[in-house]
Simulated scan of single mutants.
Amino acid sequence: MGEFESSALGRVTVYSIQGCPHCVQAKATLGRLEIPVCDVDVGKHPELRARVKELTGRSTVPQIFFNNVHVGGNDDLQKLAPEELRRLVSLVKEQPLPADAPPLPEENRSEDTAGEADGAAELSLLLREMILKLFSEHLSADGKSVDYKGMSLNPAFERYCELAIQLQRLELLSLSREEKLAFFINIYNALVIHGYLRMGPPTNMWQRYRFFNYVSYLIGGEVFTLQDIENGVLRGNRKGVAQLRRPFSKTDPRLRVALPDAEPLIHFALNCGAKGCPPIKTYTPQDIDSQLRTAAEAFLENDDGCVVDSGKREVRLSQIFKWYKADFGGTDEKLLKWVLEHMSDSPKKTSLKDILSAGKTKVCFLPYDWSSNSSH
């Protein structure tokens, strides 16, 4: 979606990322308004993330502006009263773009993802962008389902598979911590979609267990399953959910690739394909910690991730915090402290501060939506 010929004087600006169902739904709604819409992919233009957060106070996408008027995200757009929406459309049609309109990227990065990539970071980015582009092309207009069968028949998927073969020749031991984080997060998220295309989405506990312990890539001469990547590499070789042993033994050569300690922020970047997972994004080694912190803030802003009930002095968190509680300190007290420290400034954070300062706070966990987003 880009700007198109129109008699309108202003524009709508949408900050989004590829593969985001909420972004797709918002852009479908905006596309019916017959006004110019400029879609800015902050995944490809990370330099704009901080500016968007500064303007909106939010880390989530999409963020939507009518000229310089910030509407909010997709939910805010869908809830607009008809008369308010008409007023905003008239604003764009009749008033020139003001000087303080939200910024656009200086230049667009090339969409060409053909050919080979040099180095782990570049290859993981290329694979992730290719699979995300495919994902976006086969996402329904309402952003709620994905045509995985259509994806598997797309010629671009075969090009993706050919490129994935290059993973086996990578040298992983020289990667820095930041490079490992970006590489393995991107590869994990791409591998989940690849696994869905080859095996279909898992529909029960046994299928999920098999999926995450079977679906794998050959990387640098070693096999890495989804379980190996998450718990072996990114969590510093910790036991996963319902696992009896660590993924890598002391003599396993893959242990040399593992991070020295668990990185809790990865839980807001990994997407296992279930509707309850965080949104999918692409990560780069440069400023990876800031990117992951932004992902955590966005997750906690959403009521699927965290609900603060001041009346009951209760905090309801995603099951992710229960499953991986050890990564967040191991106790309710340390968990709540971690959550508070990783929230962006917001009324929700203020409410959490207030109930924590008042004394004992109850922690419980929200139901997790394991259903897939497959349209078949």
Rank of each mutant, 00 (worst) to 15 (best):
G10Y: 00
V24D: 00
A26H: 04
A26E: 06
L30T: 03
R32L: 12
E34R: 12
V40S: 03
V42S: 12
E47F: 04
L48N: 12
T56I: 04
T60R: 11
L80S: 05
L85W: 05
S90C: 04
P96R: 00
L97H: 01
P102C: 14
P105L: 08
R109P: 01
A114F: 12
A117S: 15
G119I: 15
L123T: 08
L125G: 01
L132Q: 07
H138K: 14
D142K: 07
G150T: 04
L153T: 04
N154A: 07
E158V: 12
L172I: 01
E179G: 11
F183P: 06
M199R: 15
G220W: 08
G221T: 04
F224A: 11
T225R: 05
I229L: 14
N231D: 05
N231M: 14
V233S: 12
R235D: 09
G236F: 11
N237L: 11
R238N: 13
A258N: 07
L259C: 00
P264M: 12
A274H: 13
K275N: 10
D289P: 03
A296T: 12
E297G: 01
D309K: 09
R313D: 05
V315Y: 00
S318P: 00
I320M: 01
W323F: 11
K325G: 07
G330Y: 11
P347Y: 14
L366T: 11
L366N: 04
S374H: 11
